[in-house]
Design a binder for these strands. Structure first.
Length: 592
RNA sequence: GGGGGCGUAGCGAAGAUGGUUAUCGCGCCGGCCUGUCAAGCCGGAGAUCGCGGGUUCAAUCCCCGUCGCUCCCGCCA
């Protein structure tokens, strides 16, 4: 091996190095045997270099070259030579040269592949995950891993420069069953007791504030035993941050600075900062989502007034019962077929809408769909919505939340269909002024919309018990291109306010003590005012890589049902292991 | 817990009112070829059409069930 030790990578050779003897190590990407002359495209993570075995090469060398198959791992010794002008490949960074091979050593052979390793891999995700180590050989996956490593480095670089300390917190902690389900880890030493994997380092980072580490961050693994989604994994990474003596504005400024740094360092894109701020209520009203895609406007509009004055009872009654009617003008969509409109209606119904009303705007006024109910208001509708001939008006009437989210889904669909979002653009925005409490219809009580340690906004402090639903919290989300990228808040550091919050969500003092006693105790020892945020690293990279699945930017992700086809986890364990952990299985009965 | 989509050679797909040699491309194997770079040309192997049941003279196709994957709703403080 020593004599074939690598002296150059497959991505670095150029004309200036003509005449140099080099040793390349890498994988056989492809071979092209022309009988006389023989080409080997040799690949490593830096690129592809063409190795040529000439007609007059020694017979032994030609025999080895002919034996090469895809993905053999080999070492090649040879001399760099520039290609004749007409043979230059301008598509390749190394296309001006080739390496005239003088020796080849096969380091290891490769079985026939389960799928092709190149830019056009079209294997299904399941198979790619089963052979992830092969999938990761492709340039497209290597690019994404590179982006991830560069972005993570830029995060550390920026935060270190801002005086942040990177401190690790435990992965085995006390279970605090609020919010998502915990993954549990049984204890061998303590029979019947369990650790939990952290859903986030939330409580620990607050304790670090008590300790005086006034600027903390960590690239933290977080675990949530909930169903996966395209943008959600049971195990994911957060850029977890917390700061003392700060307001919301301070948090925003640090995150804006950090992301601007990350984007210039990785994608060479200048983000416009500060990011726009939109209240939760406005986001819902205009975009029908608390994580709107701000790359295009396509605002929803209020249709209540017109609906109330109309003869369309389906709408009128909703307004009379305190609901909302929202309308959306789809530009130039008057030519939409019934099938296309039906599809939009299905999109709306997913979020609970009972239907999607539509009418077309023509030179003569409104036409089709529910237009006949609005005949006398057509001028008013067209002018107030700012519609023009050729547009399609879409509307949903329901409870405010349902009307907004379901028409928001239609907005999203239209955005995709009409290509409103320019590829390669990133529109960040802050969503703030969220309600602090949400009414749980099933259990008939108030619960924390974010978590129980979020500070209520000052103006609501005096009367929050009277009308919890009206209380806004000092909490905020960061969104980008239709994804929630981060979530955070200013925390409660005053034990009295904390008690009142527990009280409102129906937590007895004993229960609060039992679950969060260690935090509450710490807060008796001079806790600083503090707040923080936790951008999701995987989602950030996903958006930057313009992928729509988080699995594309995680080296070894779980599939949709939380399993890994590669190592076949989760798996059963030996009876002995269970015994040592004092566990007995109680499996669900097979259905008849 | 619920809904949509998919399942046909190693991979990606096509297929027929139900009819007996189930196509195509990539890959694989063999041969030819001195300039290719997704090389080309010739030849070949490779499929119990996810699994189980039903209807039928006959099912990969129709029906029922089931499993797996995938996207979404719920869930995700």
């Amino acid at each position: 091996m020593e004599k074939m030790k690598r002296t150059a990578t497959c991505g670095e050779l150029e004309k200036a190095r003509t005449g140099e003897e080099v040793v390349l190590n890498g994988w056989v990407h492809r071979t092209r045997d022309h009988g006389g002359i023989h080409f080997v495209s040799l690949r490593d993570r830096y690129g592809i270099t063409q190795v040529v075995i000439d007609e007059d090469a020694p017979e032994a060398l030609k025999t080895v070259a002919r034996d090469l198959k895809r993905e053999y791992c080999i070492a090649v010794k040879g001399v760099v030579r520039s290609r004749p002008d007409e043979m230059v490949n301008t598509e390749m960074s190394t296309g001006a040269i080739e390496v005239q091979g003088t020796a080849i050593e096969i380091l290891s052979r490769c079985e026939p592949l389960p799928f092709n390793i190149d830019e056009r891999t079209d294997a299904k995700e399941d198979l790619r995950l089963m052979y992830r180590y092969l999938d990761l050989r492709s340039f497209s996956m290597q690019r994404k891993m590179k982006l991830r490593t560069d972005a993570t480095f830029a995060v550390r670089e920026f935060l270190k420069g801002q005086g942040f300390m990177e401190i690790e917190t435990p992965s085995m902690i006390r279970s605090t069953p609020e919010g998502a389900r915990d993954f549990l880890v049984p204890s061998r030493i303590h029979p019947g007791k369990f650790y939990a994997l952290p859903q986030s380092p939330q409580l620990f980072k607050q304790l670090l504030m008590v300790s005086g580490f006034d600027r903390y961050f960590q690239i933290a693994h977080c675990f949530r035993d909930e169903d996966a989604r395209g943008d959600r994994q049971p195990e994911h990474s957060q850029i977890d941050m917390e700061m003392s003596f700060v307001s919301k504005d301070d948090v925003f400024e640090v995150v804006e600075g950090m992301l601007a740094h990350v984007f210039t360092q990785t994608l060479n894109i200048e983000l416009e900062i500060p990011f726009p701020r939109i209240s939760y209520h406005e986001a819902m009203n205009l975009y029908g989502s608390d994580k709107p895609d701000l790359r295009y406007e396509l605002h929803m509009q209020d249709f209540n007034k017109i609906a109330a004055a109309s003869g369309f009872n389906a709408f009128k009654s909703v307004v009379e019962n305190g609901g909302a009617v929202k309308a959306l003008v789809a530009p130039g969509c008057a030519n939409y077929s019934r099938t296309q409109i039906d599809q939009l209606e299905k999109d709306a119904k997913v979020y609970g809408a009972k239907g999607l009303a539509w009418m077309k705007v023509t030179d003569q006024g409104l036409d089709g769909g529910v237009a006949k109910f609005f005949a006398e208001q057509s001028d008013e509708i067209i002018s107030s919505l700012g519609a023009t001939a050729g547009d399609l008006i879409l509307a949903v009437a329901d409870q405010w939340n349902t009307a907004c989210t379901s028409l928001g889904a239609v907005r999203s669909s239209l955005g995709k269909q009409l290509g409103l979002a320019t590829p390669g653009t990133f529109r960040f925005g802050w969503i703030d002024n969220f309600p602090l409490f949400e009414w749980n219809e099933d259990d008939q009580h108030w619960e924390a919309a974010h978590h129980m340690f979020t500070m209520p906004q000052e103006e609501f402090l005096d009367n929050m018990e009277q009308d919890p639903g009206a209380v806004k919290g000092d909490l905020y989300d960061l969104v980008c291109n239709g994804y929630e990228m981060a979530s955070g808040s200013i925390r409660i550091h005053d034990p009295e306010i904390q008690k009142r919050i527990f009280n409102i969500v129906g937590f007895s003092e004993e229960e609060a003590e039992r679950r969060f006693g260690f935090l509450l105790k710490a807060f008796q020892y001079g806790p600083p005012p503090h707040g923080g945020i936790a951008p999701g690293l995987d989602r950030l990279i996903m958006v930057m890589a313009e992928e729509d699945s988080i699995k594309e930017v995680i080296a070894f992700p779980k599939n949709n049902v939380g399993a890994s086809p590669m190592d076949d986890s989760p798996s059963p364990v030996d009876e002995d292991q269970l015994k040592m952990l004092h566990l007995q299985l109680n499996l669900p009965k097979e259905e008849e």
